[in-house]
Design a protein around this nucleic acid. Structure first.
Lengths: 158, 158
DNA sequence: ATCCTTGCAAAGCATTTGCAGTCAC
DNA sequence: GTGACTGCAAATGCTTTGCAAGGAT
């Protein structure tokens, strides 16, 4: 089936992307970095460093937590990942680097991606009052409750 | 002048607000909590716990950092302050609890308040794709450069 | 062969906690 | 007087760092 072939192509592509980005900044391709990058690209769960560690350990048994931290920082430095920080203080990593927004569930702490971006006109309106300020980025996060955590919804919310 | 009288009234009012909020949740009014609250209300600088500590220490010489942390948490619990977290991982506190947004300068790290809020229609549009999710809050932060830090502006950027 | 990376363990830093004395009520 | 609050210091948890061995180019 096409499925397997496509999967293989994607894997290859992911490695190529990583090799290129690392090479461009004079850094080396390693199995550890590849595993971290592959996992980040494969999930939308915006994992913490520790979650990455636990998962990647199944692919690269001997990897250490320190290496995961270093790899994540390397990826962020290459522009292949983004670092998010939440109110609880935990850092999370996102394999998507395009400008997008998030919804976070106050119940289960899950973070999901939003397909739409804030309208440029809206940004311009908000920015208008910060005079002289040159805006380069917008970060937006919706908070609330996902269907299975909603305390106001009918079902028993765990 | 009116200035002095108004200032005194405000101070009194701030304490009354604090007393009421604390009483409502069975907690006690203390000089330390009052000093922390007063400082938060008086500034727009969104200070870290340590900055609060350094400043409040001039009013309450013997106060400890642990007490500042506890007081800040108490205020957040009473709804008299909000806790913010930035990408660098540092927690900051905001004496304003109404729903408002921020601009952060990538040069000097200063955080300022934005007078406008994201339009409800825009939130609805963004939310539309997160189906089943009940949105309760919106957090937005603009990032960029303030006039004195803008590297693309004419003057020497420090 | 060079020097970047890894894994380990120790160090760092912000925040939290335990506890005895103190204070608000 | 009672129970909450403070200050101190120790503890915690996440993240970073130093270093010798190993690996990519």
């Amino acid at each position: 089936m096409e499925g397997r072939k496509q999967m293989h192509e994607e894997t290859t592509d992911v490695e190529a992307v990583l090799r290129e980005a690392l090479g461009a900044s004079g850094q080396r391709f390693t199995e550890q970095r590849a595993a971290v990058f592959r996992f980040l690209r494969s999930t939308e769960s915006h994992p913490t460093a520790d979650e990455v560690f636990l998962r990647v350990r199944t692919d690269v048994p001997g990897i250490s937590l320190a290496t995961v931290y270093k790899s994540l920082e390397t990826l962020v430095g290459c522009g292949l990942a983004a670092k998010l920080t939440y109110v609880d203080g935990s850092a999370r990593y996102d394999g998507r680097t395009d400008d997008h927004h998030h919804v976070r569930c106050l119940g289960c702490s899950r973070v999901m991606d939003l397909p739409h971006r804030v309208d440029d006109g809206e940004v311009a309106r908000l920015q208008a009052s910060a005079d002289g300020f040159r805006v380069t980025g917008v970060r937006l996060e919706l908070t609330g409750y996902c269907p299975s955590c909603d305390p106001e919804a009918a079902g028993a919310p765990a």
